[in-house]
């Protein structure tokens, strides 16, 4: 039932997302075009070719990319939160997004092309993974118990450091400047199907691995020792989850830049509505995360149209207060 609602919400978000824009297209029209293109459904009245083109070549790729990026960030947020038993963890607050950006900017800055079209996501993934390792190792050094605040603080420190390096590279770059800045702010616009296809393999494999580790995430969210007692091979599972969460995050960052707070807000909401069990939290977070980012993107491009806001502005406006609310609740509970 929970899934039916989530799937319906996702489809609705896609149709709404495609329907709005500089040239409004009625939702029924959008639905017709989808049905015609996907299952060759026949309709009495022929569909206007230009409209179909806008839908399938411009709007739908953008909406689809928003969905995959949102789903990626949300499932990674849920996984990081379970693994680190820290409700404030998400790719953005942990600095993984910054690390991935840094990796991706290196590719653009130096024009690296080792892995063909997948160079960008692979460097982003490596950047993200190294960042999360650095954050965890450094937090361990500060405080053995990996406390919530220490991890987030470390993530923020590393984020700012990487941010300054990024600024340096932007300052040093000439012609690529605009491309990098635009990309940094986070956006899913004008990417076409190429980008979607670029992240799809990483997204599918990474998400699947994370989904298969749901039970382990449940156990790990009670602490590594407790997970050990319950029979979880803690070291192996931990590394697996960290690597594949980095893969999914890195791929998402590679195509959309740093979009904050999606991984924080969505799992939090899903947990309130459907409970903490990661076996449902992960897939539901994916669906709602995707829908959320489609709508956030819609808001970003329509609120002050024709100017487009960076999508990160919208997610941060919603995410920061949620972050504060979670922090406040945790503090209060612990003081009791």
């Amino acid at each position: 039932m929970a899934y039916a609602i989530a799937v319906f919400a996702a489809i609705a978000a896609v149709i709404i997302g495609v329907s709005f824009g500089s040239v409004p297209i009625p939702m029924s029209e959008v639905a017709k075009i989808f049905l015609q293109s996907f299952i060759n459904a026949e309709f009495g009245a022929p569909i206007d070719g230009a409209t179909a083109n806008i839908v399938m070549k411009i709007r739908f790729p953008r909406v689809a990319l928003a969905f995959f990026v949102g789903a990626s960030l949300a499932i990674c947020g849920a996984a990081f939160q379970g693994l680190l038993k820290n409700p404030l963890a998400d790719p953005y607050t942990l600095g993984v997004s910054s690390g991935a950006s840094f990796g991706a900017v290196l590719v653009i800055f130096f024009g690296i092309a080792f892995f063909g079209p997948f160079t960008l996501p692979i460097f982003a993934i490596i950047g993200g993974f190294l960042t999360i390792l650095a954050v965890i190792l450094f937090s361990r050094l500060v405080k053995r118990t990996l406390s919530m605040e220490t991890i987030i603080l470390t993530g923020i420190i590393l984020s700012s450091f990487l941010g300054s390096l990024l600024s340096l590279m932007v300052a040093l770059s000439g012609e690529e400047l605009r491309e990098i800045i635009h990309w940094l702010l986070g956006s899913v616009s004008m990417r076409g199907w190429g980008y979607t296809l670029m992240i799809l393999p990483f997204f599918i494999v990474g998400s699947l691995v994370l989904l298969l580790n749901s039970s382990e995430l449940n156990a790990l969210s009670f602490g590594e020792e407790q997970a050990h007692h319950l029979g979880v091979n803690v070291q192996r599972r931990k590394v697996l989850i960290l690597i594949f969460a980095s893969v999914v995050t890195g791929a998402a960052v590679a195509v959309s830049g740093t979009i904050g707070f999606v991984g924080l807000v969505i799992p939090h909401m899903v947990r309130i509505a459907f409970g903490a069990d990661h076996r449902h939290l992960l897939p539901l977070s994916m669906l709602y995360g995707g829908s959320f980012l489609i709508l956030a993107d819609l808001a970003a491009r329509t609120i002050v149209a024709p100017v487009e806001l960076p999508i990160g502005v919208i997610t941060a406006m919603i995410g920061a207060p949620v972050f504060a609310a979670i922090l406040f609740r945790q503090r209060k509970e612990r003081s009791v």
Partner: peptide
Amino acid sequence: AVEQTYAYTVEEIVALGRYA
């Protein structure tokens, strides 16, 4: 003491005992 961060139900927690 067990570190517990999320609001699992009692049954979910006990069910984790069957993980192995």
